Amino acid sequence: MEWSFSILLKQPLTREQADAFDHCDALADGAISYTLAPEDPDAHPQCADSAMLRELACDIEAPTLLDAVAQAVQRIRLIDGLHAVGVTLPDTVTLDEAAQRSGHGAQSLAQMSQDQGFPEPESGEGTVLYSWDRVAAFLRDIGEPVPDVPQDLVIAELALRLVNALDGADVSPGTLRALGLPID
């Protein structure tokens, strides 16, 4: 199963990190991509949104979303200075992605998309995309349980924030164990 999400970085990639990224065998499959700011921003009035410069777009095959995030973070850590601090899911989804998030079968959701009241696509050219919020609201309205946030996303987000908070902090292994964290 392929999972689409974004990894949030502590800061945007530098040119050196982008070069290392481009030459790293573990990142060569194109499953993780980045947006780099132009060298001369004044020459490019339409430069990328600054939030996009701190995101890596990921399309990773894994059994679960949590496994996919873990694989992406493991690869990202191969580049010196890159630190993942969060993870987000896209606001627009294909029907297959909506089925993943909702726990419904893709075929079942495709049939529901023909029902009156199912949200209209956000885009119809090429890949058909739907608003995840509207699809989730539709499913809830017909009595289907849909979590506000997938449990895997909650775990990944909390783990990345904890790792970021512990980076450089002087916390003893005993304290971490007392907090219930497994320490090798």
Rank of each mutant, 00 (worst) to 15 (best):
C24Q: 12
A26K: 15
L27C: 06
G30Y: 06
S33P: 01
T35N: 04
T35C: 13
P38K: 05
E39N: 07
D40H: 10
D42Q: 15
A43I: 01
P45I: 09
P45Q: 14
Q46I: 03
S50G: 00
L53I: 10
R54S: 13
R54K: 13
E55T: 10
L56M: 11
D59C: 11
I60L: 08
E61D: 15
E61L: 02
A62H: 07
P63A: 15
L65M: 08
L65P: 04
A68Q: 05
V69Q: 04
V69S: 05
V69D: 01
Q71P: 00
A72K: 07
V73Q: 03
Q74E: 14
R75V: 03
L78P: 00
H83Y: 08
A84D: 04
G86E: 09
G86D: 14
T88V: 11
T88Y: 00
T94K: 03
E97H: 05
S102R: 01
G105V: 06
A110S: 11
A110G: 14
Q114V: 09
Q116C: 01
G117L: 08
E120H: 03
S123L: 01
G124E: 13
G124K: 13
G126D: 08
G126T: 07
T127D: 07
V128Y: 03
S131K: 08
V135C: 14
V135M: 09
A136Y: 02
F138W: 14
R140L: 09
I142V: 15
I142S: 03
E144H: 08
E144D: 05
P145L: 07
I155P: 01
I155L: 14
